[in-house]
Simulated assay, not measured.
Amino acid sequence: MSAQQPLHGTVAACWTTAAGWRGVLITGAPGAGKSDLALRLTGRGWRLVADDYAHVVASGGALYAIAPETIAGRMEARGVGVLTACARGLTRLSLTVELTDGKVERLPEAESRTFDGVSLQLLRLNGFEASAVEKVAAALARL
């Protein structure tokens, strides 16, 4: 693995019987709802990997994420403060989610985002929609 500068984004992971732990990298502009979406995912049994920044590295054709030591196990909940979260360490990434406040295509063409030479499927959505958690889970299940 090669070390990189921390990537601005939040990572949450869920356990699947077929593939073990699978991580989702959530990106977007400041205030787009990255931490808010991760908080709702953890409320559904997911684990926080990193909030706000993550070290993302490529190894063996896959991408892995881990929180910088200074923020591991903590996340910010806007209006509440910094919370302790049920956290997970190094996790393989399976999907990237880009949060937007713009219009989201009803039936988008498949897209991917490449990090350090490794591509991940990309899902664009509004993170504040009530269905955002279910959309992330459904997209991950399709991989």
Rank of each mutant, 00 (worst) to 15 (best):
S2K: 14
S2D: 14
S2G: 14
A3E: 13
A3C: 06
Q4S: 15
Q5Y: 11
T10H: 02
T10A: 00
T10Y: 03
T10R: 00
V11N: 01
V11R: 00
V11Y: 03
A12N: 05
A12R: 00
A12P: 00
C14K: 13
C14V: 15
W15K: 07
W15N: 05
W15A: 12
A19Q: 14
A19L: 13
A19N: 14
G20R: 08
W21C: 03
R22W: 09
R22Q: 15
R22I: 10
G23H: 08
G23L: 07
V24R: 00
V24L: 01
I26L: 11
T27Y: 01
T27S: 04
T27Q: 11
G28M: 08
P30F: 10
K34D: 09
K34S: 06
S35E: 08
D36E: 15
D36Y: 11
A38E: 06
L41V: 05
L41R: 02
L41S: 06
T42F: 03
T42K: 01
G45V: 03
G45D: 04
G45I: 04
G45R: 00
W46Q: 07
L48N: 07
L48D: 09
A50T: 10
A50H: 05
A54T: 10
H55I: 15
V57H: 07
A58N: 02
A62I: 03
L63A: 02
Y64D: 06
Y64H: 12
Y64F: 15
A65M: 04
A65N: 01
I66Q: 11
E69K: 11
T70M: 15
I71C: 05
R74S: 10
M75L: 10
E76S: 04
A77P: 11
R78V: 06
V80S: 06
V82S: 02
L83M: 12
L83Q: 09
T84H: 14
T84Q: 15
T84C: 13
C86A: 15
R88G: 07
G89E: 13
L90T: 13
L90W: 09
T91F: 00
T91N: 03
T91Q: 02
L93H: 04
L93P: 03
S94N: 08
S94A: 15
L95P: 03
V97C: 03
L99G: 01
T100Y: 04
D101I: 10
G102C: 04
G102R: 03
E105H: 06
E105R: 05
E105T: 09
R106Y: 06
L107I: 12
E109H: 11
E109P: 13
A110E: 12
S112W: 10
F115C: 03
D116L: 15
G117E: 01
V118Q: 02
V118K: 00
S119V: 09
L120T: 06
L120K: 07
Q121I: 13
Q121L: 14
Q121H: 12
Q121S: 14
L123G: 05
N126A: 13
G127R: 01
A130P: 10
A130N: 10
A130D: 14
A130Q: 12
S131N: 13
A132W: 02
V133F: 00
E134T: 13
K135A: 15
K135Y: 11
V136H: 04
V136R: 00
A138Q: 13
A138K: 07
A138I: 09
A141K: 09
R142L: 14
